[in-house]
Design a protein around this nucleic acid. Structure first.
Lengths: 232, 232
DNA sequence: CGCTGCTTTGACTGCTGTCAAGTTTGGTGG
DNA sequence: CCACCAAACTTGACAGCAGTCAAAGCAGCG
């Protein structure tokens, strides 16, 4: 996918309808396309915040905590808009899990003044709010859940995200390693592996090779995740 | 403080300068003042998102996880703007730790269309972004830190927030209980209490009664918190 | 002064991290 | 097509930290 196609996809999927052409054109002007190979990391000015629209592939947003370990803030897939914050107490990096194509949009280009920029601002506000909601859910999972609940929650989330549109045989491919799963759940590789094995032994999931995964018993897995129905 | 005083404080502290009078007036019209006694909970439409400006007092924003335990998302103090999200997977509540006075502003009233509303949108966007940054830091702390590091981080954060403007003798009053601290750090009451005792035995802090606290050795406490200097 | 609820401390258990082998996987080059 | 290799994954043994259960100590308040 080249820049025009990527931008069109972005326009169709994300931009609110009815934006003035001038605003879209200016946004298009500020936007840059990037192609990342699997494992490659997006190199940006750490002092500025960005939004990234992921057209193709899968990415992780990670905070640098120490040389030994990073905390993965979120995983993203085709069609997602990622909020990459400016460096505060921690530095953030966006890296590709698979070959990826994305658009990079400086956050301040969405919030520039001007009579026609309200739509852009609303977009930025909405995406930031989405990111906030996801982040707060992450906090809840990290604060209160056992290893098994975390892994089960993770599988459910990935299943929700990748299972629907995937092939009909019900298998999905995890684009991230066990280590990356561990880094996103605040666990070690070994514990993640053990929990995968246990969920397999319980007959809730099936795995094949490093990355193939199938959920057999969705309600059972939800129970393992400690999911409560949303309080009415 | 009555409504006009509260709103003036909000205007002075938060609203960007140069907003059109009409926009400020409309915002003022959509804004409601609330007074909460300690322990009381703000009762809002759970289906809508709000911003709250805390004029006086201290509050906690909590997510309802199970009947046994809540996850406290953040603590807030006089002058803060709190983002109270609409109910998603979890319901959120804002409760007063001390007697509090606050302004409640529906989030959509900041994002309503109109040529003069860009300033409001920018405000909403900025506040949401602040909340996101704090939430991501929380995730990092919950995911990767030991009990002692969490408690030390918590004390440092509170000290930063309350220590500066406080009395000159260097004591601050914690408005939250050990249980609430535990709920915000993903620990149990007993562990929090043990860590307070240990930090006291280490000569890093001093406590008196339930709520009085003084930091004696700030660098030492930072070391206990496992703070890394921001990577250059 | 005595109550109630919060906090502290102690003993013990269990989960998860650490360390250390094995085993599998998927790719690479012969 | 097969053999080999490095990296990723799995499994086991063990230790340590934090949770659980229980009891005692305090603070604030009528």
């Amino acid at each position: 996918m080249n820049f025009p196609d990527l931008f069109d996809a972005f326009d169709a999927a994300v931009l609110p309808p009815g934006l003035p052409d001038a605003a879209v054109l200016r946004l298009r002007h500020d936007t840059v396309a990037r192609e990342l190979a699997a494992g490659e990391q997006l190199d940006l000015d750490p002092g500025r915040a960005f939004f990234a629209f992921l057209g193709v592939g899968a990415c992780k947003l990670a905070a640098f905590v120490s040389s030994a370990r990073e905390q993965i803030v979120s995983f993203h897939f085709a069609g997602d808009v990622v909020h990459v914050p400016a460096q505060g107490r921690y530095g953030y990096t966006l890296s590709a899990l698979t070959d990826a194509q994305l658009l990079v949009i400086p956050a301040d280009s969405l919030s520039r003044s001007g009579p026609d920029s309200c739509g852009m601002l609303r977009l930025a506000s909405r995406e930031t709010e989405n990111a906030l909601a996801r982040s707060r859910e992450t906090s809840i999972i990290l604060g209160r859940r056992s290893a098994q609940e975390r892994v089960a929650s993770f599988i459910l989330a990935i299943w929700d995200r990748l299972g629907a549109g995937s092939q009909d045989d019900g298998w999905i491919d995890l684009p991230m390693s066990r280590g990356e799963i561990a880094d996103s759940l605040g666990l070690t590789i070994e514990t993640v592996s053990r929990q995968f094995s246990e969920l397999r032994d319980l007959g809730l999931i099936e795995t094949e090779g490093r990355s193939a995964l199938r959920v057999i018993d969705l309600p059972g897995l939800s129970r393992c995740a400690g999911q409560l129905p949303v309080a009415a």
